[in-house]
Amino acid sequence: MSLELVCPAGNLPALKMAIDHGADCVYMGFRDNTNARAFPGLNFDFAAAQEGVRYAHAKSRKVLLALNTFPQTATWLRWQQAVDQAAEMGVDAIILADPGLMRYASRTYPGMRLHLSVQGSATNYEAINYYHEHFGIQRAVLPRVLSLAQVEQVVKNTPVEIELFGFGGLCVMVEGRCVLSSYATGESPNTAGVCSPAKAVRWEQTPKGLESRLNNVLLDRYGAEEKAGYPTLCKGRFEVSDETYYAIEEPTSLNTLELLPEMLNMGIAAVKIEGRQRSPAYVEQVTKVWRAAIDTVKRDAENYAVHPAWTAQLDKMAEGQQHTLGAYHRPWK
């Protein structure tokens, strides 16, 4: 299997949209901090997750369950039980970041397929092979930091399948290695499954403009003509040596449609669409475009070209209405 399309499912309607419009796999999480999109009102309880698995399996598609935060000692059992529940409902793989949890899963359920989450921060084949040798990891999702040439080096030197992010909100930091959010709010993706949590966000209209604050830290201020985005900590405007700008990253989406032929050639196993926190309509539109693109490149990679309508459709869905090739393209760095 190459270039599997892996789509986000934040709830059952989104899961069905993804399956109905061409996802090979969907990924989802439980309604707690065992996954890195632990947002209020999002995700699946056990019954909904079971229903999702039934729906996908009836159409011969796969369900991946993200258990990709780092369990703490006091709450370890919650993560262990989540692995047990995943086994019980028959998901096709679980996506893990914590070595302790990988050992539990691989010893308790030797037949279960394990994927290394992007939160595992494995950016080189020595790290990926470590997880393969010790826990039988069969696929690794790479952090969005490598150039395509570097990705190819990884693929050539590991028996583990490689999954890449193709589209969606762009983490500029190495996932699993960023605690900016807990520095400001006390909660980070690693431990709490959230970045820049909504409960710490405050919007305020002031004489200087609309201000967004995260636990009282001013992240940005918008003029009347400017469109305000969700105040993710790293996407605010800050001042560094007397210049005010997007010091870390603009609000933008990753979009790698044009890289599909190269991804196919180097043997990338799967392409991941970000956005479990987005609407079923987003999932529908993005899945349709990526299904069409992957089918096209697989039919005839040499003559593949990005269809302008695809890009137009995706840009409507993109954060900040603009897109980038991110780290796959060297100048981004």
């Binding site: 780092f70 369990p71 703490q72 370890w76 914590d98 302790g100 050992r103 921060s121 699993g176 290695r177």
Partner: peptide, 13 residues
Amino acid sequence: HINTYNPYTLEIL
């Protein structure tokens, strides 16, 4: 920069 948050991961190390 190794994420060690619980005794099971510490044991592996």
